[in-house]
Design a protein around this nucleic acid. Structure first.
Lengths: 224, 224
DNA sequence: TTATTTTATTATCAAATTGTTAAGCAAGGT
DNA sequence: ACCTTGCTTAACAATTTGATAATAAAATAA
């Protein structure tokens, strides 16, 4: 099950980023980092993490502002958010939690404790990524039937969606025309060969991305 | 709001119990207390709290033992548990979280922070039978068959209500027409396809809100 | 190079799907 | 019995989708 949870860390201190990244990766998480508030939001949109660890004091937007912005975005309504900070006065802790965060940790960082907390949260909030495919900046969500490329939603018709999802399910693999026909149209229905081409063309057009390669005489493959 | 959340506090220091009880009750929770591990388990069984706050050092069974026992009981598999303690070394904190707790607070107690944490946890876990759904400004109360949008009550017929509640139970997820038919009409009854559309239309009309999206050839999804 | 095969592109049309409205029925209340 | 309400359906409009044919372009083989 290639279903590792994704964590985004935003902090302006490189040391902290490194320590956290190292420890979380050692525990089997996929980690990305950002070094200020604005890039955290950008990264979040492209990376779509399951959990975001936000330092409160950062250049640009501070952690609480970032949290508020994220919580207003439907995509991040349910994303877990943990604040991380040196400030440990009650008022700001309360403020942080009330802005929609799920937990609040104070520095100095104790990696083991952080990991326990992260696991405790994931234990509670089961996140199902099984119907999601992500390749680079392209995300395919079978459950929601949406395709997002660099935080921009692309609308595909059903057959187009299924075709892209099929190809993207195994990036690099060449799908024979027969395989494609069987997977998407089944063995009952019979359609002409040009039909596939036309759908491929529409996907290429809508994605406006050079990601589907033709292997002449064989089939097509997806590769970013 | 009939549905006050119930909290059980277990600690051997009467002062702590009193402070916590006072603050939590002031915030609208129903609180019971226990003064050692064994009575905590007893109280839990009769009181059936939504959240248990456990001191680690207690006579009889300590907090971690209590937590382990509770977690082995199906009844308390999903009950929220917060540890409370004067010990703040990493190892015991990790141990506490790994024994199945959801959070770990160190003394001295800061009531405001505690309450924020409690609320953050309840925000995540829809304890009461998931009878209530809240998405943005839209509230759906399955128990009372009431829909409220921005403090304005909207009256839906039963089928409309069930349909909306179904879609809203997993915002973003596309429900296939078949899924919808099975969930709301069951496998026995067979109704025409237009029936769903008509109900969808009525919901859209009554809510006057662009929240139900058609995914042609697939189904419908709710998204605010 | 030329011929042949395979794929790309485009426009078009038929089929499938959904939206909308009105009307019929059944159940419950007055 | 009458009225109201909710559910379903029929009928039609509007829209979207998918498949194909026709033609161009590209790759491959002879």
């Amino acid at each position: 099950m290639e279903n590792k949870k994704k964590i985004l860390i935003a902090d302006d201190e490189p040391d902290i980023l490194e320590i956290l990244k190292f420890n979380l990766e050692a525990d089997g998480f996929v980690v990305e980092t950002a070094k200020d508030g604005n890039s955290a939001i950008e990264k979040a949109k492209s990376f779509l993490p399951d959990l975001i660890i936000l330092d409160i004091m950062m250049p640009g937007k501070n952690g609480i502002e970032v949290c508020n912005i994220l919580r207003q975005t439907p995509l991040f309504k349910n994303t877990l958010i943990i604040f991380l900070t040196a400030i440990s006065d009650d008022a700001s802790e309360v403020k942080g939690l009330e802005s929609g965060a799920d937990d609040y940790l104070t520095k100095p960082i104790r990696p083991k404790v952080l990991i326990s907390k992260v696991n405790a949260l994931f234990r509670r909030i089961p996140i199902d990524n099984s119907k999601k495919i992500q390749i680079g900046d392209l995300r395919i969500d079978r459950e929601r039937f949406i395709i997002v490329y660099k935080s921009e939603e692309i609308i595909l018709a059903r057959k187009e969606f299924e075709l892209l999802a099929l190809l993207a399910s195994k990036p690099g693999k060449v799908f024979l025309r027969n395989e494609i026909l069987n997977s998407i149209w089944g063995t009952e229905v019979i359609v002409g060969d040009r039909t596939i081409d036309v759908h491929i063309r529409k996907i290429r057009q809508k994605l406006n991305l050079d990601c589907i390669t033709t292997v002449k005489g064989v089939g097509y493959k997806f590769e970013l």
